[in-house]
């Protein structure tokens, strides 16, 4: 059934696509390359920089001077913690909406979505003051709470669209087979929804990892994740290109890898199922 496509056309398309792709990717590539240079070499003209010696010194300096690993751990704890918490709250909710839809289910879903649309600055001051007064400022637990809440609507929605694809008859079969609500969710729904739950987890870890409003507003040092850590390079350390590059590479590498795995599910998650 496939059409005959001339090799010449394919070649042109390939060249064009690779050129555009590499151009878009270039800033990332350049950052990674620069991270393996000394400060002196990093500020040289592009070609001189590229052909200078390779070194790991910047990585060592980033770790010894600014304690990279602590920020990394903060990012891990905050993004993973908030995502798992959100999943624990969202799985039962999504089950209810997907399999026991009522007259108001649609309204509840839309309302949840609307909370996501509330601009963060609208609640910045109260949250800041509440956090200040309850000692949650600059704590991991504080950020876990906030990120759980801001990502909860997306988690519910993604799970809902995945659950919707599971035929209700299978859950009814489990009910007929004597499964309690708990065993129905644990033994039947969850294993069937593993791919959906996994991609929801992945996308939300990415979103939480890169979240750069609340993490910047609510942390200063102790609980600061990588977003805040990198922001501290804005000046004047930013002029140390090699160190900035090394820090950036370490901050983006884990999530870039996760992201490439999740790109297929990304569309659906970010469009709330409107585009599949």
């Amino acid at each position: 059934m496939s059409r005959r496509i001339t090799a010449r056309r394919t070649l042109i398309v390939t060249l064009a696509a690779w050129t555009v792709g590499l151009l878009i990717f270039f800033p990332i590539l350049w950052t990674v390359l620069m991270s393996f240079k000394t400060e002196g070499d990093a500020i040289k003209a592009p070609f001189a920089m590229l052909f200078s010696d390779w070194t790991l010194i910047s990585y060592e300096q980033v770790q010894t001077r600014s304690n990279y690993s602590r920020h990394f751990m903060n990012s891990v704890v905050i993004s993973l913690g908030s995502t798992l918490l959100a999943l624990a709250i969202a799985i039962p909710a999504a089950w209810a909406m997907a399999f026991v839809p009522g007259r108001r289910t649609k309204d509840v879903l839309m309302w949840m979505l609307s909370t996501k649309m509330m601009p963060a600055v609208g609640v910045l001051i109260p949250i800041y003051l509440i956090f200040r007064d309850t000692g949650l400022l600059d704590t991991r637990i504080g950020l876990v709470i906030v990120l759980t809440l801001i990502n909860l609507p997306i988690v519910v929605w993604m799970l809902y669209t995945y659950f919707k694809e599971i035929p209700g008859e299978i859950l009814e079969a489990a009910r007929m087979d004597g499964a309690t609500l708990g065993s129905e969710i644990l033994y039947v729904l969850t294993p069937m929804a593993v791919p959906g739950i996994a991609s929801t987890l992945l996308l939300n870890v990415i979103l939480a990892w890169n979240e750069a409003f609340w993490t910047l507003q609510l942390t200063t040092s102790r609980a600061a994740p990588l977003t805040q850590f990198i922001a501290s390079y804005s000046s004047p350390e930013g002029l140390f290109y090699a160190k900035l590059s090394a820090a950036s590479t370490m901050a983006i590498a884990p999530i870039l890898i996760l992201g490439w795995f999740s790109q297929k599910q990304l569309v659906r998650g970010l469009t709330f199922g409107a585009v599949k």
């Binding site: 390939t14 990717f25 800033p27 350049w30 990415i206 890169n210 930013g238 950036s248 983006i252 490439w260």
Partner: peptide, 28 residues
């Protein structure tokens, strides 16, 4: 040829945290 790889190259900037991309563009 290599559609999968090009896709990966193109999608990459979306996964970069905002502070990193802003600083990389600003400085480098």
């Amino acid at each position: 040829w290599g559609q999968g790889i090009v896709r990966i190259l193109v999608i990459a900037p979306f996964f970069i945290m905002p502070t990193v991309s802003a600083l990389v563009w600003k400085n480098m």
